[in-house]
């Protein structure tokens, strides 16, 4: 066992992990931050996306030991301390960007990474950025719409496909 220490959602967190412990296991099982989901466990679906040092990564395909000393942000770090939704989360609610909600934590984290790199993405850029996030309910349309709305752009022009 090795001790790892990282900052998770602004707070110091540490724990003993095996070499093979995945970051997503550490977050869910040690820290009980179960908002980060494990969908496919093969780095296809993106339900486990979190930010490590500001970059979106798949927490099911990164060892916890690799995140030692890192700044990690999970879906639990998105809402305000009083539980109020952030702009992206609110836009997902307003534009029906989720149905079952399983993919939503990863979608919101990917969307946040996109908007920090590219504050006014085109619809095509949003769709391309979500290549690694799979949703089996919505057909993506309302997710794209929500992200466009969260970026402050007019979504009236986005036609249903």
């Amino acid at each position: 066992m090795t001790k790892v220490t990282m900052t998770v959602n602004g707070k110091a967190a540490s724990g003993d992990v095996e070499g093979r412990t995945l970051l997503v296991q550490f977050l869910r099982e040690n820290l009980r931050l179960t908002g980060t989901h494990v969908g496919c466990d093969t780095s296809q679906c993106g339900a486990c996306v979190v930010h490590v040092n500001g970059k979106a990564v798949k927490a099911c395909t990164m060892l916890a030991a690799e995140a030692d000393g890192a700044e990690v942000v999970t879906i639990e770090g998105m809402a305000g301390a009083d539980g109020s939704l952030n702009t992206i989360q609110q836009a997902f609610q307003d534009h029906h960007g989720l149905q079952c909600g399983f993919c939503t934590p990863g979608m919101v984290m990917s969307a946040a990474a996109l908007l920090s790199e590219n504050p006014k993405p085109t619809e095509t850029e949003v769709r391309e950025y979500l290549e690694g996030n799979i949703c089996r309910c919505t057909g993506y349309h309302n997710i794209v719409k929500a992200i466009m709305a969260a970026s402050g752009q007019d979504v009236g022009v986005i036609a249903a496909e």
Partner: peptide
């Protein structure tokens, strides 16, 4: 290559 999260690692 892959997708954005894969490209970050």
């Amino acid at each position: 290559i892959g997708d954005p999260a894969v490209r970050n690692r």
